[in-house]
Simulated assay, not measured.
Amino acid sequence: MDLFDTLSTDSNETSLALLIHNGKFMQSEYPAHIHNDGRGIVINVPDGRLYYAPHYFDATFSDETLDTLLACDGIDHSTHNWHQQHAISELPFKNIHWQQDSVSMFGKTHDLPRLSAWYGDNDKPYTYSGITLQPKPWNDVLLELREALVPICKRQFNSVLLNWYRSGEDHISWHTDAEPELGENPLIASVNFGASRRFLLRRRDEHATKLEIPLHHGSVLIMAGALQHHWQHSIPKQKKVKEDRVNLTFRMIHT
């Protein structure tokens, strides 16, 4: 089967139109229109643009991809209590080398409330929050996903950061992806598999100005323009969510 046969046809223009009311995205004040690919919506916000496809990949492909990303010899990822699992990096994961990163603040070291992995070209390390990640080499599943983004992003990314949210307890606080190595106005493509989670945006200069986008199983969200300089984003806690979610953010690292 050709890769692009796995792209979802569920998000046709009829269903996408339900997300636009009077030319605005959902209940927001931001203009939106259906992209000419018929899969996603373009949302225009001040100082940036977003492309949002709620079901870019079909359910079968998304299920198989989540299983591949979390596959670990001898462990059923869907029933295992990963929050109680120690020494994550020593487990026999089949495809992704997951690790537990930590940060130091006020003289104390804290584990980040999620697991992560960094893959890409071998000369493209990435530093954020005082953590420097050395890339592991691309594998088949990551290359397949990267290729699937070419029609909409018009480029082949050289790096990808994976975050594994083991449940709704895992989260990421307000931040921007504006590190110098990402370039002046980075284009970042976020691919999501597993539990649906809330994705929040807020203006850096006016925190009351917000936008919420639900990221579903098989969805794609692309952030473009000067967005990273003027908007922060987060994935808040959702304690009722018990299932895994894997987020992959494809990026171009400039060194």
Results as ranks from 00 to 15, higher is better:
Met1Tyr: 07
Asp2Val: 02
Leu3Arg: 07
Asp5Glu: 15
Ser11Glu: 14
Ser11Thr: 14
Thr14Phe: 11
Leu16Glu: 08
Leu16His: 05
Leu16Val: 07
Leu18Phe: 11
Asn22Thr: 10
Gly23Gln: 02
Gly23Val: 04
Met26Trp: 07
Ser28His: 01
Glu29Pro: 05
His33Cys: 08
Ile43Ala: 07
Ile43Phe: 05
Ile43Trp: 05
Ile43Lys: 04
Arg49Tyr: 05
Leu50Glu: 08
Phe57Ser: 07
Phe57Gln: 04
Asp58Leu: 06
Ser62Trp: 05
Ser62Cys: 06
Thr65Met: 12
Leu66Cys: 12
Leu69His: 02
Cys72Thr: 10
Asp73Leu: 07
Ile75Cys: 05
Ile75Met: 08
Asn81Pro: 02
Trp82Tyr: 05
Trp82Met: 09
Trp82Gly: 08
His83Arg: 13
His83Tyr: 09
Gln85Leu: 11
Ala87Arg: 13
Ser89Asn: 09
Leu91Lys: 12
Leu91Asp: 06
Asn95Asp: 03
Ile96Arg: 00
Trp98Ser: 00
Trp98Phe: 00
Gln100Glu: 04
Asp101Ile: 05
Asp101Thr: 09
Met105His: 13
Lys108Tyr: 02
Thr109Cys: 08
His110Ile: 09
Leu112Ile: 14
Arg114Glu: 10
Leu115Tyr: 08
Ala117Phe: 01
Tyr119Ala: 00
Tyr119Asn: 00
Tyr119Asp: 00
Gly120Trp: 00
Asp123His: 10
Asp123Met: 05
Tyr126Asn: 03
Thr127Ser: 11
Tyr128Cys: 07
Gln134Trp: 06
Pro135Phe: 01
Asp140His: 06
Leu142Asp: 03
Glu144Cys: 11
Arg146Thr: 03
Glu147Thr: 15
Leu149Gly: 13
Leu149Val: 10
Ile152Pro: 04
Lys154Val: 06
Arg155Cys: 09
Arg155Ala: 08
Gln156Tyr: 03
Phe157Tyr: 14
Phe157Ala: 02
Val160His: 01
Leu162His: 00
Leu162Glu: 00
Asn163Ala: 01
Ile172Val: 15
Thr176Gly: 14
Pro180Met: 10
Pro180Cys: 13
Glu181Phe: 01
Asn185His: 13
Ser190Gly: 11
Gly194Ala: 12
Ser196Cys: 11
Ser196Gly: 12
Phe199Leu: 02
Arg203Ser: 09
Arg204Glu: 04
His207Ser: 14
Lys210Trp: 01
Val220Glu: 03
Met223Asp: 02
Gln232Asp: 14
His233Asn: 00
His233Lys: 00
Lys237Cys: 13
Val241Lys: 11
Lys242Glu: 15
Glu243Asn: 14
Asp244Gln: 14
Val246Arg: 07
Leu248Tyr: 00
Ile253Pro: 02
Thr255Cys: 07
